[in-house]
């Protein structure tokens, strides 16, 4: 398992946080996701045979939020 922290821009409230946690959390290979509105990021634990930091970032972008791979 891998863990990654991605920057997420464009969230304004708890319901934004919830929709991202729900949708990304239900992707295959995603074990756990915690989104923070204050820190504008998402911490995701995933199975690296099914997801990658890039695929997860793309999935967040696909939902209409801006996502960046932070170091």
């Amino acid at each position: 398992l891998c863990s990654v922290s991605l920057g997420v821009q464009g969230m304004t409230c708890g319901s934004c946080v919830q929709s991202i946690e729900q949708r990304i959390g239900s992707l295959p290979g995603v074990i756990h996701i915690k989104v923070s509105l204050e820190q504008k990021n998402a911490t995701i634990i995933f199975d690296h045979s099914q997801q990658s930091p890039e695929s997860l970032s793309d999935a967040i972008e696909d939902m209409g939020f801006e996502s960046s791979l932070s170091e």
Partner: peptide, 13 residues
């Protein structure tokens, strides 16, 4: 949609 985050997301999509 409930907030500007939602409408912003729809706009970007």
């Amino acid at each position: 949609m409930t907030c500007e985050g939602c409408s912003g997301a729809v706009t970007r999509i």
